[in-house]
Design a protein around this nucleic acid. Sequence first.
DNA 1: GAGGTGGGTTGGTTCTTCCAACCGAGGTAG
DNA 2: CTACCTCGGTTGGAAGAACCAACCCACCTC
Lengths: 143, 143
Amino acid sequence: MTTPTTTPRACSVANALEVVGDRWSLLVVRELFFKAHRFNEIAANTGAPRDILTTRLRKLEEVGVLERRAYSSSPPRYEYHLTDAGRALSPVIQALRQWGDDFVTEGPPPAVFEHDCGHPFVAVLSCRACGAAADRGSLHLQH
Amino acid sequence: MTTPTTTPRACSVANALEVVGDRWSLLVVRELFFKAHRFNEIAANTGAPRDILTTRLRKLEEVGVLERRAYSSSPPRYEYHLTDAGRALSPVIQALRQWGDDFVTEGPPPAVFEHDCGHPFVAVLSCRACGAAADRGSLHLQH
DNA sequence: GAGGTGGGTTGGTTCTTCCAACCGAGGTAG
DNA sequence: CTACCTCGGTTGGAAGAACCAACCCACCTC
């Protein structure tokens, strides 16, 4: 551990955060999951300032998280939709939601999801190979 | 959906992001998972400016994500450790790492984790009740 | 007593965000 | 045909946050 670094640690977490680690991007992605696809909806539901929202949408499009689709051309109007990369952010959103539910939101969670199995959805992170939950201590760095 | 909102959507994701949704906080948490507990280590490994790091550490302490422990008193020196709430961020970090590995980091992932089961760890989000992976489409909002 | 270590502060500059107002193409009501 | 509304932005200016380099102080080692 703690390789004597002068430059920050090379890390996929940091790389991911460079793309979606600002105040609004993940809220935009959340809205797209909630099927709010239009500029005004996203602006209203996130509370993001419109100019910032414009630059975020452009950036997220550029990095391939979402795509812009014209739904009208005569006055050019666009909708925003998640790409595969964007949809792959679902675990990030759900993990944040779960943590927010458990540790920051007061009272009952504002939105409750139901899994196909019929139970209220409580997110757990598990190992794809064995299916067991990735508890603390069950992960080690390979070197 | 799309209840005619004038205020932003009430949401645990937003609440979580208000606490850890800035540029450095999750990197700090990552470092604590990596067992870098001292100010200088965290500063070097994240690349965060020292003054910003100070205010982030104070804020994260205040909201209960980490705690500050004196390891020397004569010149007062401190270490930072995750609380239970902080350790509960593990799924968020792992989900971000997985997404970074899959969609933004070029080449092989810089850090490979191994699960206790012996396989390289690939993070999957699943339902605590039934254990099945929470694929896209398997979740619905309860109303 | 010179220099290093650890955990910060401080001052000054730059960068980003934020807000309110505006815009232009088109559709709609009257 | 005129007035007004919608949609998806853009613009200017003020305020705040981030950033960087330098400094600080108690202690420890050489």
